[in-house]
Simulated scan of single mutants.
Amino acid sequence: MHKETPAVRDGILTAAATALIRDGVEAFTISRVAAEAGLSVGGLRYHFASKQALLEGLIDHAVGGFDQALERAGDTPGARTRAYIAAALPGEGSGRIAAALVATVAVDTSMLAILRRHFERWQSMIEDDGIDPTTSTMIRLTMDGWWLAAFADLAQPDAATAAELKSRLTRLIDEATDA
C-alpha cells in the first residue's frame, strides 16, 4: 500500500515532466512515468488513476507557482501585475515548467482547455488589480511572450536588456498607480 503524500505526488509529477521532456510526447506512458518515479504502475495509479489525471495533475503542478504568486500579492494597486512579472520571468526552472506545459498539451489537446481556464483566471485577477486593465493586460501579454521565447529559445534578451525590460514594465505599473 502506498501513502498518499504531497511529496510522493510531487515526485510523480517531477518524473512525468522529466519523462515527457526527455523522451517526447510519443513515448509518454504511465509505465514510463512509473519507472522514472521508481514506482510500480499500480503505485502510480494509486495517485493518478489515468493518464488524463496525470496530465491534469502536471498542468496544475506547473501553474501552481503562478497561482501562489498572485494570491500572495495582496490588494495594493498593481501588486498582482508585479507578481505576474516576477512569476513569468525566465529563470530557475521556468523553462522546464514551460516545456512541461507545452508537452502536456501536445500529448492531449483537451489539456489546452484546462490551461485556458488558468490564463483566463489570471487575466481576471490582473484586470482587477487597481490599475488600468489595458496596462495590466499589455504587461501580461508581454510576459507570456517572454516566457514562450525562453521556452523555445527564441532570441531571448541578454541580461542587461532583460533588466531594462523589467524596469520599464515596472515603471508602467508605477505610472498606472499614480494616475
Rank of each mutant, 00 (worst) to 15 (best):
D153P: 12
S50G: 01
L169T: 00
F151M: 14
A62G: 10
V63G: 01
T137H: 14
G24R: 08
A7D: 03
H47M: 00
A150F: 13
G91M: 10
R117L: 10
R171D: 04
R168H: 03
T18D: 15
I114M: 10
I12V: 05
A62S: 15
D178N: 15
A162F: 09
D178E: 15
V63F: 11
D174C: 03
G57S: 04
R140T: 08
T29S: 04
E71H: 12
L54G: 06
L58N: 02
I173P: 01
G43I: 09
T76N: 10
R168M: 07
G42M: 04
D10K: 07
P6M: 11
A27D: 11
E164R: 15
T161F: 10
T137W: 15
Y84G: 08
A103S: 15
T170P: 03
L54R: 02
F66L: 06
R116A: 14
A17D: 05
I85C: 01
T161C: 03
A79P: 04
A7K: 06
S31W: 06
I12Y: 02
Q52S: 10
K51A: 03
A176E: 04
S124C: 00
Q68E: 10
G43L: 07
G43Y: 08
A106R: 12
A15I: 10
E36W: 08
